[in-house]
Computed example of a mutant assay.
Amino acid sequence: MMCCSRLCKFLVVVIVSCVTMHQFVTGSTTELPRDSDTTTMFSFLTRDHISRMHQRSRAYRRQEIRNKVLEFFGWTSVPQIRPGDRARINSTLANISSFRVTERQCFYASCDLPNRIDENMWNDSTSGSLRLRFDVLPSESSASPEIVNATLMLHLKERDLRNTERILIKVLQYLKPLRRRNRSRGQPNRRNSIRQRILWTSLVDWTPGAWVSIPVQQAANDWIALNKRNHGFEVLVFDEFDNPINTSSVFSSIDCDRPAEVDCMEITHSLPLYRSATPVLQVYKTEAPFSGHRRKRDVYKEAMSLRQPEKSRQRIAGLH
């Protein structure tokens, strides 16, 4: 009986060993427990193995990009560049920082004001003047911007009963924001000393429906090239006898529903600016776009920073 029992145990061991060997040879696997450490399966991978796998993966991605580029241009192989052409290309790339491009920008007059400007004073209709501000963003100093030309365009309305055929137009640039002083020193609602610069004065014909083009290159250079604060324009009108005329009866008003900036191509083709009759600022500038590293600008964020917060609006309204 003892021998028979030992023989049975021996046969069981042999059968289990054969089954295990069969699974190993045929590639059969058994599902690992979920809590097992699978990283031990890859313990044979060394740093060199992983580095080679990385390089093969990067090479594969580069090859895919290369194939896509060739397919886009319709090429079957990479074109060969002659040594002379290569030298010219390298020379051009070395001197590309000296290149300058000309850009044309067009802006509508904005109804939103920064919090440094008193909104009630700005929109005071009793002043008789036209105050304009455009959301013009400064350029990067690394681009070395230069203002070639800047023109303020105002649309003339129908003449009134006074039948004044000629008018004197005076355009000034605010050098300080229009607002009341924070410290009145015993004088409530005391104004700041208004600092302005005369940009243009001319006697023009009052032609109904015509546009008056006013050069304002000096102001645009301050805002765009020199990165100075933009406090806006003031436009005054007088008749031939130097009597003041309310600008609301001379020029078309601001359309607050218009965007701050418009594609200048629309002016050339569909002329919506002339149909809308809202004041327009056109700027021509040159820049060196490849000089140094230029950060990506968030135009929306910069424009929103110029808006007047609601709390400031309520505070200003409480002063009056």
Results as ranks from 00 to 15, higher is better:
residue 126 T to N: 11
residue 252 S to Y: 04
residue 182 N to K: 08
residue 278 T to I: 12
residue 73 F to H: 08
residue 115 N to P: 09
residue 144 S to Y: 15
residue 75 W to R: 14
residue 291 S to D: 05
residue 207 T to F: 09
residue 142 S to D: 11
residue 293 H to V: 11
residue 174 Y to S: 01
residue 157 K to P: 02
residue 96 I to G: 04
residue 156 L to E: 01
residue 210 A to V: 06
residue 210 A to P: 03
residue 141 S to D: 10
residue 203 L to P: 06
residue 48 D to W: 15
residue 170 K to D: 08
residue 32 L to F: 05
residue 135 D to H: 09
residue 309 P to F: 03
residue 271 L to P: 05
residue 219 A to G: 04
residue 157 K to G: 00
residue 97 S to Y: 08
residue 299 V to W: 11
residue 186 G to W: 03
residue 176 K to E: 06
residue 122 W to T: 02
residue 78 V to D: 13
residue 124 D to R: 03
residue 287 E to A: 11
residue 160 D to Q: 13
residue 32 L to T: 02
residue 209 G to Y: 01
residue 295 R to I: 09
residue 200 W to S: 05
residue 285 K to I: 07
residue 211 W to P: 00
residue 231 H to V: 00
residue 266 E to I: 07
residue 308 Q to R: 10
residue 261 E to C: 04
residue 188 P to L: 05
residue 59 A to K: 08
residue 42 F to N: 12
residue 11 L to Q: 07
residue 293 H to F: 13
residue 119 E to F: 05
residue 291 S to W: 04
residue 150 A to L: 06
residue 39 T to W: 12
residue 10 F to W: 07
residue 255 D to N: 09
residue 50 I to C: 06
residue 229 R to F: 07
residue 10 F to Y: 11
residue 152 L to A: 01
residue 104 R to S: 05
residue 229 R to T: 05
residue 274 Y to W: 15
residue 231 H to W: 01
